[in-house]
């Protein structure tokens, strides 16, 4: 029972970290631009499809993870080819997400910018239209059948938890570490970097930022591109794991991302992080103890938290934090 509790908790953390990667882009865009991007799920799906193409090329350049080349570090045999394979796959995920940078910048500059001053319903209509367009773009580019990057078993050959004496999929551990790194970098970026502080200042007072010489156009384009990057990175990280890339894959993550950012507080990065882990862990526990609640579990978590804290755990409207 205790072993099982431990594994279910790890599974919940893994799922939460994945949710955070997907939701981070949504919360950045909403927190700074005030845009509720319904096409976010499709940017996530686009990352999943792009990595399928990139990883196929990239892994062809390196040795198979099955090659028995290994070295010993502190008395522990490390399969070098599996580690190299893992590094290449993660690099492929980053490259795939980078493809989303110009896509996000283009969308903001051409489609989103003209509607900042209009009613919110225009945002919803525009981003919903983009959602449909992206589905057709992916259909045109990769066809209608699900695609498997085929990297999951290779990543699982990298020793992680085995070194600590128990078996757990290495991909899950890698995904958690990567997601944690994303969170730390985002906090550093918005708290410590000059560009991040300019973005926050612009989010708080757009007129004042313009008065002191900040180009709000460029700032907003950068933010939207960042949001698209992290959506794509989330999709790429999921697609190199056990899940296939398929056309409708953007819908559920979009809905769960809304749950996460509402639980965490709209526009709060720290809130999205804590909210994602809470939704991940509690929903996995709930499914374990009572499988019938699978669909309702994330929403029950949201409901319970909103009853106690209606503004979410770290609610900061209109300011990324």
């Amino acid at each position: 029972m205790i072993d099982s509790f431990f594994v279910h908790t790890l599974n919940g953390l893994w799922y939460g970290f994945i949710l955070f990667m997907i939701a981070s882009g949504l919360t950045i865009i909403f927190g700074v631009l005030g845009i509720l991007n319904l096409a976010h799920g499709e940017l996530y799906a686009l990352g999943a499809f792009v990595v399928f193409s990139v990883v196929g090329y990239a892994t062809g350049l390196v040795a198979s993870p099955d090659d028995p080349v290994s070295t010993v570090v502190f008395g522990v045999p490390i399969p070098v080819s599996a580690v190299v394979f893992g590094v290449v796959v993660l690099a492929a995920a980053l490259v795939s997400a980078a493809v989303l940078l110009p896509v996000g910048a283009f969308i903001e500059a051409v489609f989103v910018r003209p509607i900042y001053d209009r009613d919110e319903v225009y945002q919803l209509l525009l981003t919903y239209a983009l959602l449909l367009i992206f589905v057709d773009v992916m259909k045109f580019g990769w066809g209608t059948s699900p695609l498997d990057a085929g990297t999951y078993s290779g990543l699982n050959q990298i020793p992680t938890t085995e070194l600590a004496g128990f078996d757990y999929p290495s991909y899950n551990i890698i995904a958690m570490l990567v997601s944690l790194a994303v969170f730390v970098w985002l906090v550093w970026f918005f708290d410590r970097s000059k560009t991040g502080r300019i973005i926050r200042a612009t989010a708080i007072n757009r007129d004042m930022a313009t008065a002191i010489g900040v180009s709000t156009d460029r700032t907003f384009t950068l933010v939207f591109a960042m949001g698209a990057f992290f959506a794509g990175f989330g999709g790429a990280m999921v697609s190199i794991g056990p899940q296939t890339a398929f056309l409708e894959m953007g819908l559920d993550p979009l809905v769960l991302s809304f749950v996460v950012i509402v639980v965490g507080g709209l526009g709060s990065l720290k809130g999205a992080f804590v909210g994602a882990l809470l939704v991940g862990v509690i929903s996995r526990w709930a499914i374990w103890l009572y499988p019938a609640v699978e669909l309702a579990a994330p929403f029950a978590v949201m409901l319970a938290i909103l009853l106690v804290k209606p503004e979410g755990l770290f609610g900061t409207w209109g300011e990324i934090e």
Partner: peptide, 21 residues
Amino acid sequence: YDGFPDLGTDDMSTHIEAVNS
């Protein structure tokens, strides 16, 4: 054990761990 993951789910790990245990 009987688990019924949502059609088109993105995670079966909870059900798999239940089977493992």
